[in-house]
Design a binder for these strands. Structure first.
Lengths: 212, 212
DNA sequence: ATCGAACCAGAACAGCCGTTCTGGGCGCGC
DNA sequence: GCGCGCCCAGAACGGCTGTTCTGGTTCGAT
């Protein structure tokens, strides 16, 4: 990165550019930099920018206003792909899903953990404890209408057609003429429902737990 | 956001700005937009930018070149604070920590999950299964030399002073004159060591599991 | 038909901006 | 001393850029 080590002035300049972009959303002009660093000539800035450019710290577009960018943000833009995952409520074994309406907390996660459209739920209770999902854990859910046998899903139980039912977190197993919703807790019994009583809302694709 | 619904032209313009910033690292000029959208007058761009501004989709700095920014990236810059967490190896109950040298995978996480300086390890084996940490889970470790009773820590066992020992993932309990390193697996016995044999490397602050 | 709103073209202005040129000061090795 | 690298000041050139003004078209409501 820094071949002959950057001078104090150049590091200062790099830091100023970084801060300027973060604050304004666009890069500084040569004169912005000059003013910000107490330099009275644009040629000085240009001189040091050229040094930084040769050192590989920044990229510049010739003859373009504000045509300076930091290489690490260039790399960041390429590498980091984030998905904003909203935490939309709490889910328990049998109780209705508590939607957290206004306090829409949102969690940025890398695409390795969550794809576009995912949402997160905080788990209430220990119904999935044997699947290593604890009370208070965060489950990331990918919305989908179908699921494979054994998937951990968010399922909506319809008491009667047309009536909104309760959402629950369970493992799903299709059996001969019914569907078994299996909690992961020896003290809890599975629920058996008719396929038409069930609507799969999504599948748990990740579990996140925070400790003390 | 969109009070009277944006016209096709305005949505097109918004998309162009977003793409331009992603590609160049700085916002477009009025003339960049005009050219990119096949508009032959800067006044048209200015007109529509003003509409977008009133709609709250963008912010503009008056009399500043490239002084346009998207509000969602503004919000993103405020809200999202990311920490790059390197995944530096695999850890098991008793075996030495496998450092993954070159394939330095790195995971961007929000500050809610990891603070600066943290690193991540992939868990090998089921020694912490009763603490709901499974084989293959990712643990986020905050480096620290001390730990409280009951904390899950990455501990370095020194066979003899000066010799690098093995790293292990355990719960730590200080007893009268020794330290108990307790696995969370009924089939495994705790390890007792002298305090001077032990060096706490860090504490597990989060657990991340990916499913299917 | 008439009016206003929405959208556009072209041109011009004043200031902004990157670039370049000339020249100076300072420290270091020879 | 002398030259060289490094950093700086000031000024000027020419293109870039946001803004504004005038005027036009289209379309729907009145």
């Amino acid at each position: 990165m820094a071949r002959p080590a950057l001078s104090a002035r150049q590091q200062q300049m790099l830091e100023f550019i970084r801060e300027f972009i973060r604050e304004h959303g666009y890069p500084p002009t040569v004169r912005d930099i000059a003013q910000g660093l107490g330099i009275s000539s644009t040629s000085v800035v240009d001189y040091n920018l050229k040094v930084l450019q040769r050192a590989g710290c920044i990229q510049r577009e010739r003859e373009v206003s504000r045509g300076v960018r930091l290489v690490d943000t260039v790399a960041e833009r390429r590498a980091v792909r984030l998905v904003e995952v909203p935490v939309i409520g709490r889910i328990a074994a049998g109780e209705p899903l508590e939607a957290v309406a206004d306090t829409t907390e949102t969690l940025p996660l890398p695409v390795e953990l969550a794809t576009e459209g995912c949402y997160a739920l905080r788990v209430k209770g220990k119904s999935m404890i044997e699947d290593l999902i604890d009370d208070g854990d965060l489950v990331v859910v990918r919305p989908q209408q179908t699921a494979n046998n054994g998937d951990i899903v968010v399922a909506l139980l319809l008491e009667s057609p047309g009536v909104e039912g309760v959402a629950t977190l369970k493992r799903l197993y299709r059996e001969r003429d019914r569907v078994r919703l299996q909690p992961a807790n020896a003290s809890m019994e599975p629920i058996y429902v008719q396929p038409e009583q069930l609507r799969v809302q999504g599948k748990v694709v990740a579990v996140i737990r925070q400790l003390g």
